[in-house]
Amino acid sequence: MAVRDDRRSSEKKKSDDLQIVNVENLQNNMKSIYLSRTFLSIIGGVVAGIWGFTGLMGFVFYFAVMAVASVGFAAKAKFSPGAYFDSWNRIVFDGFLGGLMSFVLFWTFAYDLVHIF
């Protein structure tokens, strides 16, 4: 993740809460979040399939993984996402449902390979 340069961050503390965000860095950060979420949803799908979750349990697992990912992103941003994003929503909610399709696919795949046949 790219940090804004120092001059700007010190500026922000003094001036009355003016949002100054470098758009390119913001997009880069959002992209890395999107990729991590996709990766996690695929891995989570495989894990859920191997552990043999069925029904609601699998979706609960997906949301648990995504929630953990959100906490992880917040920790990575040192709990001050203002330095990396323009709002908390970017970390907590963005792309929450985006990986669901991949998750279902890999969940089904792994579950079938391990448990059905």
Partner: peptide, 21 residues
């Protein structure tokens, strides 16, 4: 239970994330 043709469609939509990776 999913038929093979529908498994194809599931793949078509679900693999988008994998491709972006």
């Amino acid at each position: 239970y999913v038929s093979s043709r529908s498994w194809y469609f599931l793949n078509l939509f679900g693999l988008r994330g994998l491709f972006s990776l």
